[in-house]
């Protein structure tokens, strides 16, 4: 990998993380209200991990390119994600973690699955 590519990836990753930092992510030692309203209360560390899973997925350059292709700018995606509840993020993160390893599926399908998964998880 060329240095310019590496720095670009780092930039993208940092950008993604800094944008997410603006989202309502409570510090790990403060018990958040959303955590208290979950019936199956996962701890705040789990929520932080779920947000991180989603962050790193969304920060990938190929994911962003695909989202842009689908008509979603990075800004719009981040804004939408920031409005999701922890439980909704957890459902998304689960989907990402259960996705087949890259290669088995085309990348386009993976992103579509992710977006569509949102529909399924709440509905079922």
């Amino acid at each position: 990998m060329f240095p310019s590519q590496i720095s670009r990836q780092i930039l993208v990753a940092t950008l993604g993380v800094s944008l997410m930092a603006a989202a309502p992510a409570a510090r790990a030692e403060l018990i958040g209200t959303q955590q208290l309203t979950e019936s199956t209360a996962p701890d705040s560390a789990t929520f932080a991990k779920d947000r991180a899973t989603l962050d790193s997925f969304m920060a990938r350059a190929d994911v962003q390119a695909k989202l842009e292709q689908m008509g979603l700018s990075q800004e719009v995606t981040q804004q939408r994600l920031a409005a999701l509840s922890d439980a909704e993020v957890a459902q998304l993160a689960n989907r990402i973690n259960s996705m087949p390893a890259a290669g088995a599926l085309g990348f386009q399908e993976m992103v579509i699955i992710l977006l569509v998964a949102i529909l399924v998880v709440l509905a079922l």
């Binding site: 292709q69 689908m70 008509g71 979603l72 939408r80 409005a83 999701l84 509840s85 909704e88 998304l92 579509i112 977006l115 569509v116 949102i118 529909l119 709440l122 509905a123």
Partner: peptide, 13 residues
């Protein structure tokens, strides 16, 4: 979401 020609549930919420 233009690529899906539809709106996702989470986004409505």
């Amino acid at each position: 979401t233009p690529g899906l020609e539809g709106s996702l549930q989470f986004d409505l919420l």
